[in-house]
Simulated scan of single mutants.
Amino acid sequence: MGVARRSCTRPIQLDLPLLACLVTVLGVCAARSEAPRGVAVPFVFDPSATCDPRCQHAGICIRNNTCFCSRGYEGETCQYATCYPKCKNGGECLRPGKCRCPPGFGGKYCHKVKCDTGCWNGGDCIAVNGVAKCICPSSWTGSKCQEAICPQGCRNGGSCVAPGICSCLDGWLGGACHMAVCHRPCLNGGKCVSPNTCRCRPLYFGPRCEERKMY
């Protein structure tokens, strides 16, 4: 059996005895495994046959203008490579088992949707109307799922850095950056309303509401 396989792939010679041997072995190999696409086996071989245009990719001219294609090729002159499974999503078979994929698809047979920049933070790349797109988890958004979502919002110049978490500017605190910070506390019931700024109750005034009005 090992000799038969080597004979199937041996370069074709022009002498008649070797061609006859090659055709016999080809018939046995095709019958035992996957038959090349083309003429059915067994077939009549004409050693004086000519094919114009010539058979490509190691195909054999067995009758006038009739090619017997090697495994992985098909067509009248064996000009087309075949991929199994077939290339998907508009992919092109370049050579046996090798697909060239269109933008947005990847994998050996173009069966995987591919987002060029990738999908971050657990996003899934899927095809939407033939276009690769990231579908993000509920707490992320953006073309790559790179932007966190803070349902409460981030106020006073704060930015959302993770789901539900704001990064606040100096002078602000809180889940939504809504709490001002006064480094020196407001007195007499005063309230810190912006960084280091107190709003005083009636009868009081001053930077920290430390002074009482006199009537």
Score class of each variant (00 low, 15 high):
136 C>F: 15
135 I>G: 14
94 L>N: 01
105 F>T: 03
108 K>M: 05
170 D>N: 13
213 K>R: 11
26 L>W: 12
9 T>F: 09
169 L>P: 04
173 L>C: 03
139 S>D: 15
174 G>A: 10
88 K>F: 14
121 N>D: 13
155 R>P: 00
45 F>R: 07
209 C>Q: 10
172 W>K: 00
160 C>K: 02
140 W>D: 08
153 G>S: 05
60 I>F: 11
50 T>A: 13
42 P>W: 06
66 T>E: 12
142 G>K: 04
128 V>E: 15
147 E>G: 07
20 A>W: 03
169 L>T: 04
15 D>F: 09
80 Y>E: 03
162 A>I: 11
58 A>E: 13
32 R>W: 12
142 G>C: 09
27 G>A: 11
205 F>M: 15
6 R>F: 11
44 V>G: 06
117 T>E: 13
55 C>P: 11
78 C>I: 06
35 A>M: 05
98 K>T: 01
84 Y>Q: 00
51 C>P: 13
167 S>D: 12
182 C>K: 02
60 I>W: 11
130 G>H: 02
104 G>R: 02
119 C>Q: 06
73 Y>E: 03
211 E>R: 12
41 V>H: 13
71 R>K: 06
133 K>F: 00
39 V>W: 05
153 G>M: 05
153 G>A: 04
141 T>M: 04
75 G>H: 08
11 P>M: 10
206 G>L: 08
195 P>T: 12
134 C>V: 09
10 R>Q: 09
162 A>V: 06
58 A>R: 12
66 T>K: 09
23 V>G: 00
144 K>N: 11
155 R>D: 01
159 S>N: 04
153 G>Q: 00
34 E>H: 07
22 L>I: 03
18 L>A: 11
77 T>L: 00
65 N>V: 06
136 C>M: 13
26 L>C: 06
35 A>C: 07
10 R>G: 00
203 L>R: 09
146 Q>M: 14
54 R>F: 08
138 S>D: 14
84 Y>C: 00
83 C>T: 02
183 H>G: 14
21 C>R: 10
125 C>M: 08
142 G>F: 11
19 L>D: 08
86 K>W: 12
55 C>R: 03
159 S>A: 11
124 D>G: 04
70 S>Y: 07
50 T>G: 15
135 I>F: 03
150 C>K: 07
16 L>Y: 14
141 T>C: 06
86 K>E: 09
114 K>P: 08
158 G>W: 03
69 C>P: 09
94 L>A: 05
185 P>D: 15
185 P>Y: 01
199 R>W: 02
164 G>M: 03
187 L>E: 15
162 A>Q: 13
